[in-house]
Write a protein that binds this DNA or RNA. Sequence first.
DNA 1: GATGAATGAGAATTCATTCAT
DNA 2: CATGAATGAATTCTCATTCAT
Lengths: 207, 207, 207, 207
Amino acid sequence: MQEETLSRREREKQRQRQEMLAAGIELFSEKGYHNVSMNEIAKKSEFAIGTLYKFFKNKEDLYKSIIAELTEKFDKAIMEALEETDDEIEKLRNYVKVKGTIFMENASIVRLYFAETTGASFNIKAGLDIEIREKIEKHMQSLALIFESGMEKHLFQRIAEPYHLAVALDSLSSSFLHLWLEAPDRQPYPVDPDMILNILYKGLLNL
Amino acid sequence: MQEETLSRREREKQRQRQEMLAAGIELFSEKGYHNVSMNEIAKKSEFAIGTLYKFFKNKEDLYKSIIAELTEKFDKAIMEALEETDDEIEKLRNYVKVKGTIFMENASIVRLYFAETTGASFNIKAGLDIEIREKIEKHMQSLALIFESGMEKHLFQRIAEPYHLAVALDSLSSSFLHLWLEAPDRQPYPVDPDMILNILYKGLLNL
Amino acid sequence: MQEETLSRREREKQRQRQEMLAAGIELFSEKGYHNVSMNEIAKKSEFAIGTLYKFFKNKEDLYKSIIAELTEKFDKAIMEALEETDDEIEKLRNYVKVKGTIFMENASIVRLYFAETTGASFNIKAGLDIEIREKIEKHMQSLALIFESGMEKHLFQRIAEPYHLAVALDSLSSSFLHLWLEAPDRQPYPVDPDMILNILYKGLLNL
Amino acid sequence: MQEETLSRREREKQRQRQEMLAAGIELFSEKGYHNVSMNEIAKKSEFAIGTLYKFFKNKEDLYKSIIAELTEKFDKAIMEALEETDDEIEKLRNYVKVKGTIFMENASIVRLYFAETTGASFNIKAGLDIEIREKIEKHMQSLALIFESGMEKHLFQRIAEPYHLAVALDSLSSSFLHLWLEAPDRQPYPVDPDMILNILYKGLLNL
DNA sequence: GATGAATGAGAATTCATTCAT
DNA sequence: CATGAATGAATTCTCATTCAT
C-alpha cells in the first residue's frame, strides 16, 4: 500500500512535470526562448514560479529538458523503424513514415527542434546541441549504411555517395514536413512518404 | 555643388551604416540575437550608441536591416541567375551555383538567415519573416516554372509535381550547404553543384 | 502515569529542540545568518521543515533562541563565578577563567555572539541585542563593584574609574579570546588567565 | 580647456561615487548588509539602480568599496601617527588619539568595520577581510615594535610580551570607542586618550 | 549632429513560510 | 501530529532606449 502511495505521488509528479514542459513547448515555440519568461510559463502551467524551480534548476534546464525529451523520443522511433525490417527499400519508407508521424504529433516542439538544429541556435553555449547533433549524425550513418547495403545488393544504383544520399533523404523529408507544418491541410506529405522517395528513386532526366 | 556635398555626406552615411550592419552581423551570428547588446555593437563598430539609434530606430530594426539586406542580395542574384539563360538545365545549375556562391561569401549571415527561416525564430513577432518567406516563395514558383517548362519540352520526366521538385532542389542545396558550413574543408559542395543535381536527375532504382 | 508520559514527551521535545538549535549554531556560525536557509537547518537536524516551525515561529526566533541560550548559560556561569568567593582578586581571576572556559567549549557560537554584540549586527531589528546588552551591562556593573570594593579595601589602587576598569577587563579578555579562536594552538590565553590580569595589575611604567 | 572639462567630469564622477558610498554606509550600518537592497541604496542616493551598477559591479563590490575606503584611510592615519615622533610614549598616545579621531568622524562606518573585523563577518567568502586583517596585523606589529623598543630603552617594564601589549592597547581603545559610540555624550574617551593609556601604564596593585 | 551617461522596466532566481495530507 | 510540496514576494542584475551636453 505504501508502494502504491509512493507511485501515486511519483505519477502525480510526472504529470506536473509534463504540464510544465507542455506550457514551455507552447510558449517557446510560439515566441522563442528569450521572449518567454519563467513567470509566463508558471502562469500558463498554473504553477507557482517556485514550483517550476523545484522541477527544473533554471530556465535553460527546462528548455533542454523539452528538447532532450523530443530528441529521445525521435531517436528511439527512428532506430526502431530502421530495424523493423531487413529490406532496404522498406527501411527507407519506414524512416520517412515514422519521421512524419512524430512530427505531426509534435508539431509545436518540432519548431523548437529545428531552431536548435538549424542556423544559429539560441544557446550556443548550451552544449545540448552536441548531444542532438550526435543523434542526428547517428541517423545519417544508419541511413548511409542502408544505402550502401542496397547498392551492394544492386537494389540501388550508385548515383551518389551513400552518406550524401542519407543527407538528401533527411533533407527532403524535413523540407516537406516544413511545408506541411506551415499549411497542414494543403500539403500531402505526412500521408504519402512515397512522394519523397520517388524523387530520389526515379531519375528526372531521360538518361 | 550642394548636391555634391549632400551626396558626399550621403555616401559617408551609407558607409557608416554598412559598418554598423557588419558589426551586427558578426556579433549576431556568433552569439545569437538576444546575447548581443546594442552597446557591444556600438563598441565593435566604433560608433557611439546614440549614433546607432540615429540609423536604426531600435535593436530589432537593426537586425531586420541585416536580414533584409541579405535577402535582397540573395533574391537579386537568384533572379538574375535564373534569367541568364533559356535552357532549363542551365538555369537549375545556375541556381545551385549562385546560391552556393552567396552562401560561401556570407557564411556568417547565413547562419542568421537559417535561424530566421527555419524553426522558431528569435523574433517571430518581428514579422520580417513574412517578407523573407514571400521572396523564398517567389523563388520556389520560379523554379517550379522551370521544371514545368522542362517537362513540357520533354527535357524532364514528370516524376513529381513541379512545385515539389522546386522544394526538393531548394532543400537539397541548403542541406549540402549546411554540411559545408559546418566543415568547409571536407565537403565538396560549393565547388560541385552537379552532385546535387545528379541526385535529382538520375533515379536511384533500376527502373 | 500521565504526568510521566507528559514529562517524557516534554523531555523528548527538549531533546529535539536542542538538536535543532545545534544544527542552527553550526550552520549560522559557519556561513552567517543570511546565508543559511531553513531547509538547510531542517536537513542538518533531520527534521521536516514544518517541524522546525512547530518549535520556532520563524527563522529569527530560532536565531534568537540560540543567542539567548548562550547568553543565559554565559550569564549564569559568570554570576556564579563572581559569587564563589569573597576575595576580589579571586573573583576577577574566576571571571576570566570562566569566560575562557565557556568560550573554548562553545567556540562556534561565540562567533555568533560576537557578531551580535559587536558592530552592525545582522539583525538590528531583532531587538535581541537589547536583552544581551542588558546582561553584559549587568556583568560590567558587577565587575565595577568588585573593583570599587577592592579599592575601598585598598587592595587596588584607584588608577581609573571602577566602571572603566570593568570595561577594560572585559575587553582584554575578549581580545585574547579572539586571538585564541583564530589560532587555538599558538595562543596561551585560555590556559593562562593571569597573563591578562597582569596587564592590568602591574603598571607598565617605572613610577 | 579640454583638460579642465575632463577633470570636471572626473570630479563629478567622484562626487557621485561618494554619494553612493555614503548612502550605502548609512543603510548598511543601520540595517546590516543583507537587510539592505540595491534599490534602497539607489533611492537613498537618488540615482537609478542602473547607475549604481555602472559604478559598482555588484552589491558586494559596493560593500567592499566602503570597507576598503575606510580601511585605507584608517591605515594611512595610523601609520602616519606612529611615524610622527620618535618618542615611544608619544607614539602610543598618537595611536590612541588618531584612532579616536577617525572613529568619531566616521561613526557609522565604524559599525560596519567592526562587523567585518569581529565575529562572523557577512562575507566569509568575500576575502576582503583578509586584506583588512593584514592591515590590522601590520598595526599590531608596529605597536609591538614600539613596546619592544620602549622596553629596550627601559622606558617600559617588560610586564608582558610586546605583541600582547599591542593587542591589549588595540582592544582597550576599541572598547572605549564602542562605549562612546553607544553614548557619545556621557563617555569621555575620544577626548581623553590618556585614560586608556593610564590603565596600562600604572599598575593596579600595590606591589 | 554625435555622444555616452543615466534611466528603470523586466527577467531569473531564492527562500521563508504555510497548509493539505 | 509530522511532513514537505507549493507558494509568491522580494532581490539582484541587465540592457534597450533616451536626452542633455
